[in-house]
Design a protein around this nucleic acid. Structure first.
Lengths: 240, 240
DNA sequence: AAAGCTTCATGATGCATGTTATTGTGCAAC
DNA sequence: GTTGCACAATAACATGCATCATGAAGCTTT
């Protein structure tokens, strides 16, 4: 299965052959885009729903003073806001972190998909509810945890989410994020992100080489930062 | 109109008489509950959807170390998670901040309501999307703004949301929150919340007396903290 | 009206994290 | 292979907010 959306939804429910075919049908030929371009900008009115097939994107908001907050990551299989048409205008931007392959899905295709495949409709519901749960969890992180725990939580979450779409082998995690982007996510400066990562290194928790994070001691990392993946609402207990 | 849900949804779309009747029908006799009780707790499986008719509630999460983060406020007219049945278990709690009147709505009633009244279905969609937008906005607040701006933003947001359901007269805002709860919301200590409020007072922005906040200079408060209500996606420009 | 509790007010001190600056390192362009 | 650039590493210093402590003010209970 090379359709990452199908893979992701399969981790919620069993999809029939017809469901899988319907999911493949909405994709069409992937559209390629370069890193650092915006898929949609704050204030624009969305015309299509975006499905990320390859690469990474993020939701973010830039304030008047230039400070930037990353609000969510989109990884392969993530579909942004299937019902965004109801709103008038975007209240944040979506930008690409890497080169990417996308499918733009029309409103009508979404409606058709959910009308004819109730299992998919339900799985998409699950997916949007999980997105919201992740957002709540990030809020708790920013509000209540210190720098180390925030960064550790991010690594643990990405670990679980990437495994879900088959993008992680062994104990290596390919995370195409600069320390600045990690800082914009967890509301830290690059300097401090660096301090935290140094500490993780010296404590033998992770090693990072060219944007590949090798986690040496996942159980300990999880325990140190109090990570509990239940907010991801993964249905199937997949193997560690 | 004394149905706050109908009032709130009306700020998104015009509802027919039949729609309004359907919204009234799901309410039944209100259930009264005392302040400080939990409507549902972290880890529980939800059986009903909760509609808040009178009083205030909040979503919150308590960490192992006892620290608490308030994730959202529910005010009259707010309906929590119409599709929460899809998830297995709550990943946070919902607690009452004041005495309250509630309607518990069954899953079937929700399904029936949305099946037979497409305008309501759409308006509920809008409402959940707005809830999510508020959550994103809070994340940006916690990540990028200082204590003063965070508290000011909260006041501005509550102003707009309460006006939407007809709970605000003149320039007075009845907000039944202690400084500790404001702190748990905006990730500040009570001490620092107090300092911020003192500053607002001495600058002539607000005066607070027995949990009623009188805002003397809303335009200036908004400007000082960079408030932009577009994230609330209010359709109708109501009068200030 | 005293006692007890919750909430608010305010000062002294410390720390986690921000700010500014400098240097190193690896990759890309030419 | 030199230049330039993005990213990472690290040091010195600054600060917003937390922590700890104390007291006052207002309610509730008895």
């Amino acid at each position: 299965m090379d359709n990452p959306l199908a893979l992701k939804l399969s981790s919620f429910t069993d999809l029939s052959g017809g469901d899988l075919a319907a999911l493949d049908a909405v994709i069409g030929t992937p559209i390629l885009r370069d890193a650092h371009s915006d898929l949609i900008q704050d204030g624009e009115r969305p015309e299509k729903v975006i499905l990320l097939l390859r690469g990474w994107a993020c939701r973010y908001k830039v304030l008047e003073d230039g400070s930037k907050q990353i609000i969510a990551y989109l990884v392969p299989g993530d579909l942004c806001d299937p019902h965004v048409f109801i709103l008038d205008a975007m209240d944040h931007s979506i930008g690409l972190l890497t080169d990417a392959a996308l499918a733009f899905i029309s409103r009508d295709a979404i409606i058709h998909l959910t009308d004819c495949c109730p299992k998919i409709a339900r799985a998409l519901w699950w997916s949007t509810l999980v997105d919201e749960a992740v957002l709540r969890h990030w809020l708790v992180n920013l509000g209540q945890r210190d720098a180390f725990d925030r960064v550790a939580h991010l690594f643990c979450e990405l670990w679980d989410r990437l495994r879900q779409v088959g993008l992680k082998e062994d104990d290596e995690l390919e995370v195409p994020l600069t320390q600045e982007q990690i800082g914009d996510t967890m509301a830290l400066t690059t300097v401090h992100v660096n301090r935290v990562i140094q500490r993780m290194r010296t404590e033998g928790l992770v090693s990072i080489k060219r944007k590949k994070i090798r986690v040496h001691d996942l159980p300990r990392l999880r325990e140190l930062c109090g990570y509990d993946p239940s907010y991801l609402h993964l249905r199937r207990r997949s193997q560690l």
